[in-house]
Write a protein that binds this DNA or RNA. Structure first.
Length: 510
RNA sequence: GGCCCGUUGGUCAAUCGGUUAAGACGCCUCCCUUUCACGGAGGAAUGAGGGGUUCGAUUCCCCUACGGGCUACCA
């Protein structure tokens, strides 16, 4: 295979927020394309007009952009294979479907939804709870196989609604080579006569995916495992159209599962367990409901894709932190797992923390500044530059910076009184009074000077510095956390330090 | 029910017939630190079950069990 012309596609339907699993599918496509110097295309599968959600398409593109895996070709940046929305390709599908009917590989079916329902009721049994439209039942239904030529002509000429169904063979096996799973085979007669063209003239996924992958010259078709059962239909279609030689190589990715219980991870699980499932905030235009995204939750895009890539894939060395470039370099479809993986938000946060720790100030500063601003704190960049490096190892999420940084800019609003009060007495009170006086005499307000002053005062009043250091920290910070106290004191300055000590004394004396 | 896919610690997972069955997250202990974290050192914890094949199976095959997906004019 020539590496030059690799073309892969991510083909979501614009029906709502972009799910983790969707992003990972997009990511694997992207990595594969980039590794082989090929093209990554975004195709919008909007053939179900009843499920169309305005804004969802742009949202998907926004998500991919945020992740840093923007497509090379999409509806806004078309290449030579447009249109990139299936709704705009509508005309071509009918001709292909008709072509199949002519060749005898498909047929017209006139059954109404009610009739289909009736059939399913009628043939339903304990042994067969969901009867199919297949070689066993199709002659009992209303279609161009069961009806006379005249009847069919009449229905067609009177514009009676119809669909086109594939006529699955009654014998033989259909083989498929999956890059992850190897050979997979299906009994042809066990697959039903799937609808190819719907009554509204739109194709179903089955027709569209084959026609479009062919006309867009897709070389590798990657999708979630949920598509495996219908893969034989697609393989057959490639054959029936006479395109078998150009059929893309397949790979079906394992599913991302719920952390607890079992089943596919859904948006509901995120709501229930308190973590995001969508890449970015999604505002449903119909319900007005807002669903949290990884971005807004405080994830770095590189951490997000790193985490996703390692959910079901690894390079075999035990390495876990990868830049996007490293992922592109190391990625192979064959090393993707076969089994589904339960999503673990704790591990996801660990990835983010690793990325925060190793990210440069230039990258972090604008993001943090913005988050602080949204929390009512307008932080000075000069101070932020000093303070981010000494607090970032404490943050799993970008939003954690609010708590870790707040006290550098404003006096603490919540003070952990309980950590001090039990051991607070007259002597400590007077120590801090003295400390204020001594501090007033410090000419150069540096961490070293503050520390020296603090310890000398403590010794002078016969305190072990450690006994008064915790109250000092709590006065400045509000709680038992943060970098070295004297460092903090030096950064917030003499005035703020003294003010907070005074406030602390007042509070603890109460 | 049928079809398809899967199954190594709580979770993510390495191993491509021979290992004391890696590593990571989480958890626990200790060290560093008179805060929290980072860092460091330890610890508990894994091959679903049964048959084969083989000198030797986590690894290959079969069966069972379990889990998941699909079974729409949705993708």
């Amino acid at each position: 295979m020539s590496s030059q012309n690799v073309r892969v596609r991510f083909a979501p339907s614009p029906t709502g927020g972009l799910h983790l699993g969707g992003v990972r599918t997009a990511l694997f496509n992207y990595l594969f394309a980039k590794k082989h110097h090929g093209s990554f295309v975004l195709r919008i599968e909007d053939t179900d007009q009843t499920r169309f959600v305005p804004g969802a398409e742009q949202y998907i593109i926004d998500c991919l952009n945020w992740c840093g895996i923007a497509p090379d070709e999409d509806p806004h940046r078309p290449g030579n294979y447009g249109p990139y929305r299936q709704s705009e390709r509508k005309e071509m599908y009918r001709a292909y479907a008709e072509q199949l009917v002519e060749k005898g590989y498909a047929y017209y079916a006139f059954d109404t939804p009610e009739e289909l329902e009736k059939m399913r009721e009628q043939f339903k049994s304990e042994k067969n709870p969901s009867p199919q439209y297949n070689h066993e039942t199709r002659l009992k239904m209303s279609n161009s196989l069961s009806l006379s030529k005249e009847e069919v002509e009449k229905k067609l000429s009177t514009n009676q609604a119809f669909v086109i169904r594939i006529k699955m063979p009654e014998h033989g096996e259909i083989h498929l080579h999956d890059m992850i799973r190897g050979d997979v085979s299906f009994q042809a007669n066990l697959v039903d006569d799937k609808v190819l063209l719907k009554a509204d003239g739109m194709p179903t996924y089955h027709l569209a995916v084959v026609v479009d992958d062919h006309s867009m010259e897709i070389t590798h078709a990657f999708r979630g495992e949920e598509w495996l059962p219908s893969a034989p239909v697609h393989v057959l279609l490639w054959e029936y159209f006479g395109w078998k030689e150009k059929m893309p190589k397949w790979a079906h990715f394992p599913l991302i599962l719920k952390p607890d219980g079992q089943g596919k991870l859904s948006k509901r699980d995120g709501d229930r367990l308190g973590f995001p499932v969508f890449a970015m905030d999604w505002l449903d235009p119909k319900s007005g409901e807002m669903t949290k995204g990884f971005k807004e939750m405080g994830f770095l895009p590189n951490a997000f894709i790193n985490m996703l890539a390692l959910l079901g894939w690894n390079d075999g060395t035990g390495k876990e932190i990868f830049t996007k470039e490293e992922l592109i370099q190391q990625f192979t479809i064959e090393r993707i797992h076969k089994g589904g993986a339960k999503f673990d938000f704790e591990k996801a946060k660990w990835y983010n923390q690793e990325w925060i720790k190793s990210s440069d100030n230039e990258l972090l500063l604008p993001l943090i500044k913005n988050i602080l601003h949204n929390n009512g704190i307008d932080a000075d960049s000069k101070i932020l530059n000093k303070v981010i490096p000494i607090t970032k190892e404490r943050c799993h999420l970008l939003n954690d910076f609010v708590a870790q940084l707040k006290y550098f800019f404003i006096d603490p609003t919540e003070i952990d009184v309980d950590a001090v009060k039990p051991k607070w007495d007259e002597n400590k009170s007077s120590f801090f009074h003295t400390l204020i006086q001594e501090m007033n005499n410090i000419p150069n307000w540096t961490a070293e000077e503050v520390e020296k002053c603090f310890k000398e005062t403590a010794t002078k009043l016969q305190f072990k510095p450690g006994d008064v250091q915790l109250p000092f920290r709590i006065m400045l910070v509000g709680g038992k956390f943060g970098p070295a106290v004297f460092e903090i004191s030096s950064i917030i300055g003499k005035n703020s330090t003294i003010r907070r000590i005074q406030q602390g004394i007042d509070l603890f004396n109460k």
